[in-house]
Design a protein around this nucleic acid. Structure first.
Lengths: 244, 244
DNA sequence: GTTTAAGAATGAACAGTGTTTAATTTGGTG
DNA sequence: CACCAAATTAAACACTGTTCATTCTTAAAC
């Protein structure tokens, strides 16, 4: 890191800094000049989450990614927790909401849930922030409104619709939180190996205490990819269907 | 703190220590003499969670509660994360599992879920550790086995049963994670005030963008206590029922 | 009873974290 | 150009988890 030197007081020091900046063409010079804004901070933080996971996003890390100082961030963001909320909000803003179509309401909701899940998994660990974030930011409320529109459109009572969307949000966040350790990225081989590992551990259990876990170990560890996810979401939707 | 003195080397020093210990009857003497064991560490940590919440449980805090040094804990516990896992395990060990009774299987499962939820809420923030904990410790597996027994007993296919228990676990943890900020303890007035606050915020939304959220604000924010919780759990159970 | 060996606890440090504050630099305006 | 207000810095503070050489304790062996 060349930016660690003290600020130049003489023109000679600035000269040295300019020479050192030749190695980092756009990083130091450009970014140093562009003003530090909340939008850039959130983007930098999200980039770190995507690359190194949520625990890797620290104020110092974000600041250095912007060629700035940790303290400078506090002029645009009150807290680390506020930064977390902003990140979750920006992510939720990316979710595309459909125009309610009663004929394919289940597919529509499942699609929205999958979008959110994929975003959470693309930014590993961010779902943890989503759980701790303010109950309802404007961006999460936007998704909630979109889901409500679909459900109310097919005749679900408002209260049931609200509770259902609540359950969906919670499940998606929790699923993404525990699912990030199983297969860090779309590595299918690692996922299979992990499932094998769990299966072996299940079979090692004493059958006296864990009869069902042992005898049904194969079925319990079955389910590739996001089958489990689709199952649960579909299950929730099925029990909300006013047709039945 | 009297227990901060160095250990006595002469009998006279011990004499002085005993006199000083008269003021702190059981705290200094007993705890200093009793060997530091993993069980006592976990208990002390859980006591802190109950009193100050999960973020308050730090290695130094746990050590000082035991009259010991932070480093001493690492002779019995590998990590902070291992301590977290142990805490969750000890909590899960408290859940009482029923003998499967097909006639009242829904009540039985709902009861187990409520036990877990109440434990998570009694120890605020611990559900966060439950989500990050190892996918399946022996104690959580025990609960899983108990739920599986009930479901398989009534004829649910093993795979469906496994996925359902998975969904239940995730939902319970997520529900407890976000529910701790609403009403820190059983304060009913605070809960009502909080719901009022959310309702007002909903009504402030622009109706053009949030039509359903605004028009149904009352129903959406309705639901006292754990009605929402019971609704979701019952919903999951209903869609798993082999009768339908 | 003394000595010794093993284990546990200590104290101090290290590398991090979020956050604050006085001092400095900066950019836009009169 | 001078000035002022806002943004940025550098440096600290109070924490966090974790390690390690040293000290102490305890219990067994001689």
């Amino acid at each position: 890191m060349t930016g660690k030197d003290a600020a130049p007081t003489t023109s000679r020091a600035r000269w040295v800094e300019q020479i050192a900046a030749l190695d980092a063409p756009a990083a130091a010079v450009r970014k140093r000049r562009e003003p530090l804004t909340v939008s850039r901070i959130v983007e930098a933080a999200l980039a770190i989450v995507e690359a190194e996971g949520f625990p890797g996003v620290t104020m110092r890390r974000v600041a250095s990614a912007l060629g700035a100082t940790p303290g400078a961030l506090y002029a645009h963001v009150r807290d680390k927790s506020e930064l977390d909320d902003l990140m979750v909000g920006r992510l939720c803003a990316r979710v595309e909401l459909p125009e309610p179509n009663a004929a394919m309401w289940q597919e529509q909701i499942l699609d929205v849930c999958r979008q959110l899940r994929d975003l959470y998994l693309q930014y590993p660990g961010i779902s943890q922030a989503a759980l701790q974030a303010a109950p309802r930011s404007l961006d999460t409320l936007r998704i909630n409104e979109g889901l409500l529109a679909i459900l109310i459109d097919i005749g679900v009572t408002p209260r049931t619709a609200g509770w259902a969307t609540d359950a969906l949000f919670l499940y998606i966040a929790a699923y993404s939180a525990v699912s990030l350790r199983r297969h860090s990225d779309g590595d299918e081989a690692a996922e299979a190996a992990d499932r094998e590992e769990v299966l072996e551990r299940f079979l090692m259990l004493p059958e006296s205490r864990f009869p069902n876990t042992v005898t049904h170990a194969a079925e319990l560890t079955a389910g590739e990819g996001h089958d489990r996810f689709d199952f649960t979401v579909t299950m929730i939707l099925g029990s909300v269907d006013p047709q039945h």
